[in-house]
């Protein structure tokens, strides 16, 4: 495969500002320019708390979709997104309950506390975030008739994507958001074309068209004693969750890593006979990499560059104690191979 597992941190933005960037990288998190930090905090609050309705164009994987959004702040927070083209699709949320309806599928209920429907709004409130992203204020622009202030969230290395946000000047509401890769290509983007900030949508516009007739999602149990670890995660990615799906084979695990903005899931499961070695998939900012070696299959999924997934998937190892247990079970030599150098 391409690339190596231990490349030096690749650099995404090739501009002749190396010296300035080095200086910026040395600035501690707390020294982030106050203006941008305030803007981003206001952005996150605005998406949650404001009433609004509007239409936006969402571009993902080269496919543009026009969508209508209705949002009512408060408790419980309510919102609904309706696709305006293609097969009928809508997503309605009341608090943590989300009802999805798409095509001919039955309306399905998902329980997802903390979820929201508007995409590409990074949560930059984490104290560690500024270690890995630089926030840069930009010029003013107009989006959907509002004056917007541009803010760039630039990764400090090539293991994560960058954001460019257009925030409404008064409220901080994100009128437009793009996610960019290391070559400044747009991977995903949304752009409001009409927006009524402060307008309380009607209840009928917030309600799902159909009641849910199915329940989606899956149950996973927390694993307190992980058997696997990502030995060589890129800087800033820390493990925040280890779970195992109900009924999964012994040794299977789902681990979640995050740098505060980008998220990666790593799945380790027994390998089925006859499977291949390594395969990758991508759509928009989502990448998937599956690697089969020995008796185990490792899959990484995340809104991160391929290099990040490669480094993580290729460095999955049994933790020391778990390795002993696996050997006792006769699984010696079945761990994924060491990362390629």
């Amino acid at each position: 495969m391409r690339g190596t597992a231990r490349n030096p941190a690749p650099t995404p933005w090739r501009l002749p500002w190396a010296v300035l960037f080095t200086i910026a990288a040395a600035i501690p998190a707390q020294a982030q320019p106050a203006g941008e930090a305030v803007d981003l905090a206001r952005m996150y609050a605005a998406v949650r708390n404001l009433d609004y309705e509007g239409t936006f164009v969402y571009l993902r994987g080269g496919q543009p979709d026009a969508m209508r959004i209705f949002h009512a702040g408060g408790e419980p927070e309510r919102e609904r997104i309706v696709g305006l083209g293609g097969a009928p699709a809508e997503y309605a949320r009341v608090g943590a309950d989300i009802v999805c309806e798409s095509g001919t599928s039955p309306a399905t209920l998902f329980d997802n506390p903390g979820a929201r429907l508007l995409p590409l709004v990074p949560d930059l409130r984490g104290s560690e975030t500024a270690k890995y992203y630089n926030v840069v204020g930009g010029t003013e622009d107009r989006v959907a008739g509002y004056v917007a202030r541009r803010v760039d969230v630039v990764p400090r290395d090539g293991f994560r994507y960058g954001y460019r946000l257009w925030l409404e000047r008064e409220s901080g509401f994100p009128l437009r958001s793009t996610i960019l890769d290391g070559s400044r290509r747009v991977l995903e983007e949304y752009l409001f074309v009409t927006l009524d900030l402060g307008k309380r949508p009607r209840d009928t516009d917030l309600a799902a068209s159909s009641p849910a007739s199915a329940v989606g999602g899956s149950h996973e149990d927390v694993v307190r004693d992980p058997r696997w670890t990502v030995h060589d995660a890129p800087p800033g990615f820390v493990r925040v969750k280890v779970e195992r799906a109900a009924g999964a084979a012994e040794g299977s695990e789902h681990q979640v890593y995050t740098d505060g903005i980008a998220n990666v899931s790593v799945y380790v499961e027994p390998r089925a006979p006859g499977e291949g070695s390594e395969r990758g998939y991508s759509r928009g900012m989502v990448n998937i990499l599956t690697r089969e070696a020995g008796a185990w299959r490792t899959t990484g999924i995340g809104d991160v560059p391929r290099a990040t997934l490669e480094r993580m998937v290729r460095s999955v190892r049994p933790v020391e104690a778990a390795e002993d247990r696996l050997k006792d079970r006769g699984d010696a030599g079945t761990s994924p191979p060491r990362a390629r150098q």
């Binding site: 030096p8 630089n134 630039v154």
Partner: peptide
Amino acid sequence: APGLGGAGATI
């Protein structure tokens, strides 16, 4: 592009 300076101060 390993080792290129962090030219990413602006997009």
